[in-house]
Amino acid sequence: MSKPIIELKNYSYRYDNTDEIMLKNLTLSINEGEFIGVVGCNKAGKSTLCKCLVGIQPFVTGGAWDGEIIIDGKSMNETKGEGVSEIIGIVFQDAESQFTQPTVEDEMAFAMCNFGFDRETIRERILYAAKACGLEDLLGRSPFRLSGGQQQRLAVGCILALQPRVLILDESTSQLDPVGRDDIFRLVGELNKQGKTVIMVDHNIEKIAECVDKVLVLHDGNLVAFDDPHKVFADKERMNSHSVRLPQVTDAAIALRDQLDIAADLPVSLEEAVPVFQKLGQEVV
């Protein structure tokens, strides 16, 4: 049983110059090696949560908070966010706006140069990250000449080169086509299999349900659910009342529950749904 790498204890957060509390009394624990999907409607607090986990809010951009966030056993109330970047890396939605260097290789080296790594280590890590993200043949190209999917992979690669234990992706696939999106999910899935903890904010419920160990549902800053996707998506009414739709196969399975005679969990992915719906097809025939 792996130990928690991120813990939130009654954590609340409010932006500067507002009265509205964006995150309300969140208590949860994420174990090392888990793949967490974060879902919720707009303004649910998903991006705010991500920025709080890396200490950007409140320690860099301001704001007020209550409770605490503990990263790898150390409370951020004491560390003030120092040292978090060695454990957690974050990739934002708009990849292109994060690039500042003329080539892919320089871009991957940028963060490591800022943290003072030596040249040999930088070289090794670039080779590792480029291979992991499928960018080995693109090292000499300008980041602005890459496709959307390649840019997002580069954004992941830049953070991966720092070898964080936790990777947070904040809506990284929202600007990508389906092929690019699947690429990113495949990439983070492989990184998770290698032991990295992944926290992914995404609106694509189907991909989230298919890939993650647990789903974290936020609504209006409140924690609505944090559990296995089968348990979370089993309660359709609760999800819909918090503006979260179910995976299509789960929705269909719920509608046909009487005909399907489902003994165990409802399917949440296509792979799980095929044998369940096949039975229905045989009965109809």
Binding site: S12, V60, T61
Partner: peptide, 14 residues
Amino acid sequence: MAMNSVDTSKGRLR
């Protein structure tokens, strides 16, 4: 609710 805040007036991001 009384919440904690930090003095970001030194503007690390400036």
